[in-house]
């Protein structure tokens, strides 16, 4: 059964159509890659799913409920976690307190939130920087803190927005391991937006490709990589 369905979702910003009639399903337990050139509307789709912006038309169904008009915090409580491409750490709080704040979404007691925080710190390999201020972390740490905060809300669906961008090769491998473990150990379904092909091709079960806000193809990583429209969207029509 699909955990999330987008049905003919469209978003207009004034005269610009950022997302145009996009539909896709995410199956429970899968990792769906969302790819497309810069400005193709990937982050906008995330912002529509967790209602940072209202959709112009179309429906978003999560676990059988229509969440199109729910508020951002309600969607988080229903079980959709997300990370931000432009990271949003709570800068003046420690790494642990960032996760604490998120953990309180499911835990009402201080001790409960603390236990969740410890688990998440360990899972995301952030325990050694737990007491540092989040604003002072290097980019790899801040990207991982994004994942940690989202995990602390105990999501069933996780939207990862370029969590691997700006990482060096060693950090990249660590990030891939963590993302794989999120699915295999925690059983969380993932939609991942990523520019780094090494990550997206390795991790995704299926890939949904968009350009100029419109779906161009969907299929296995191998199929999508071989699709001429995808190659054209990324490299231009002269590339053959």
């Amino acid at each position: 059964m699909s955990i999330l369905s987008l049905k003919n979702v469209t978003k207009n910003f004034g005269g610009l159509t950022a997302v145009n009639n996009v539909s896709f399903d995410v199956e429970e337990g899968e990792i769906l890659g969302l790819i497309g050139p810069n400005g193709s509307g990937k982050t906008t789709i995330f912002n529509l799913i967790n209602h940072f912006f209202p959709v112009s038309s179309g429906d978003i169904i999560f676990k059988g409920n229509n969440i199109t008009h729910k508020k951002t915090h309600e969607i988080a409580m229903l079980g959709i976690g997300r990370t931000f491409q432009v990271v949003k750490p709570l800068k003046r709080l420690s790494v642990a307190d960032n996760i604490m704040a998120a953990a309180f979404s499911r835990e009402s007691t201080f001790e409960g939130a603390k236990r969740v925080t410890r688990e998440v710190l360990e899972f995301t390999h952030l325990d050694h920087v737990a007491h540092q201020k989040a604003g002072g972390l290097p980019i790899a740490g801040r990207k991982r803190l994004e994942i940690a905060k989202a995990l602390a809300t105990r999501p069933t669906l996780l939207l990862l927005d370029e969590t691997a961008a700006g990482l060096n090769p060693a950090e990249l491998d660590e990030a891939i391991d963590i993302i794989r473990a999120i699915r295999s150990d925690l059983g969380i379904t993932i939609i991942i937006v990523e520019h780094i092909m090494k990550v997206i091709m390795n991790i995704s079960d299926r890939i949904h490709a968009i350009a100029y806000g419109t779906t161009i193809t969907e299929g296995s990583p191998a199929e999508v990589a071989a699709n001429p429209t995808v190659i054209e969207a990324y490299l231009g029509s002269d590339y053959h």
Binding site: K71, H73, G81, K88, D97, M100, A101, S105
Partner: peptide, 25 residues
């Protein structure tokens, strides 16, 4: 020391990030 306090700080630091972790700002 309670949930409320952590939520206050989260709202101060970034209201959008706060709502994304389930905080009714």
């Amino acid at each position: 020391r309670r949930r409320e306090g952590y939520y206050f700080l989260s709202i101060r630091e970034d209201e959008d990030a706060a709502s994304a972790i389930g905080i009714n700002a």
